[in-house]
C-alpha cells in the first residue's frame, strides 16, 4: 500500500503553523521560524503542497524599490480540510485512547523503579 501523502512530522508542523491563521497570507521565513524547519525542508514541503493545489501562493509587491517581491502562502479550502484531517489522524495515532486524560498515563520514576524490581522492596 503506498504511504499516505502529507503525513510526515515536518509537514504536520507546517499544517499547524498555517492553520493557526487559516485566512492569513504567510511568509516563508515566518513559517520557517514557527516550525523550526530549515528552508531546505520547508520549501520542498510547500512545493509539494502547491503542486497538489493544497496551498495557494502569490507575490507581494516590494515595499521599497530595490527589494525583491516576497512570496506568500495560504492553504486552499481543500488544503485546510486535509490539514485538519492529517493532524486529527496524527493525534489519534499518538494517543489511541483519547477518553483517558493524559495525566493518568504518567508514571512517576520511583513507581517505575519499584515495578521493575519487585524483589528489591522485600
Amino acid at each position: 500500500m503506498p504511504r499516505l501523502p502529507h503525513t510526515s512530522p515536518q509537514t504536520l508542523h507546517v499544517f499547524e503553523a498555517l492553520l493557526a491563521a487559516p485566512d492569513a497570507w504567510r511568509y516563508g521565513y515566518d513559517l520557517s521560524r514557527e516550525t523550526g524547519l530549515a528552508s531546505g525542508s520547508l520549501y520542498p514541503i510547500l512545493m509539494r503542497l502547491a503542486e497538489g493545489a493544497l496551498l495557494e501562493t502569490r507575490w507581494e509587491p516590494a515595499e521599497q524599490p530595490g527589494r525583491p517581491p516576497r512570496h506568500l502562502y495560504r492553504l486552499t479550502p481543500t488544503g485546510a480540510e486535509l490539514a485538519r484531517a492529517r493532524l486529527a489522524r496524527a493525534a489519534a495515532v499518538s494517543s489511541p485512547t483519547p477518553a483517558v486524560p493524559p495525566t493518568a498515563a504518567v508514571v512517576t520514576p520511583s513507581a517505575a523503579v519499584v515495578r521493575l524490581r519487585p524483589q528489591a522492596a522485600s
Binding site: 528552508s39 531546505g40 525583491p68
Partner: peptide, 29 residues
Amino acid sequence: PWGAAVVAELDQVTGTWAVLRWTAGGLRV
C-alpha cells in the same frame, strides 16, 4: 518561482550562520 521565493526571504534572515543555512536550503530547492 520557488528559488526566487527563498532568495526574497534572505532580507529577514540575520546572522551569518542563519544566512548560510538558509542559502543551503535554497540550493536544495
